[in-house]
Amino acid sequence: MSLKDQVTEDMKAAMRAKESFKLATIRLLIAEIKRKEVDERIELNDAQVLAVVEKMIKQRKDSITQFEAGGRQDLADNEKAELQVLAAYMPAGLSDEEVAAEVKAAVAASGAAGPQDMGKVMGILKPKLAGRADMTAVSAMVKKALSGG
């Protein structure tokens, strides 16, 4: 079953179980998937659906930070709950050791000599690690590896 089909099935299950909050969050996700399909005139595959989920998760994290800074804990809690529903669609994350091993392999494979080659290394890592690791942390690891750290 594709990820998109899984999301649709989860929406139906949430409707039957009368889980209104989960249903609303899943409907947001489906709307975003459909918007992207209409805009680009394509049928999204699992990797593209994952990218949509990842973007929505990032938006929720940013919102949580902003709401907490503004003293709106009620809104931050709402975003955290949405984040939990969306996180269920992400594949299992990699451990720091696994990410470090991937970074080391990518540096070796690209023949990177220094910080100026960061783009090459990230180009290799992004498709492999998308959705399975925090790309900001991966970028920091690559920078450290290329600067001789």
Rank of each mutant, 00 (worst) to 15 (best):
D74A: 04
S2I: 14
T65R: 06
A47M: 13
E97C: 09
G149L: 04
E32K: 11
E43D: 08
S2M: 13
K143G: 10
E40P: 12
K126D: 02
L94W: 05
N45G: 10
E40V: 06
L86Q: 07
A51N: 11
A24I: 02
E97G: 05
G148L: 02
E98Y: 13
K61E: 11
K22Y: 06
L83W: 03
V85C: 05
A140C: 00
Q116Y: 07
A14H: 13
E37A: 05
A113Q: 09
D62R: 06
L129Y: 05
L23Q: 05
V142K: 11
D117S: 09
A69E: 12
S20P: 00
V142I: 07
A145W: 04
A137C: 01
A100R: 01
K126M: 06
E32R: 07
K34M: 08
A17C: 14
L23I: 05
R132F: 08
M141P: 00
A109V: 09
K120S: 04
K128M: 07
K126H: 01
A88N: 10
A133T: 00
L44H: 02
S147Q: 12
N78D: 14
L75Y: 08
T136M: 05
R60L: 07
I30Y: 13
A101H: 03
A137F: 00
A31D: 14
V121W: 10
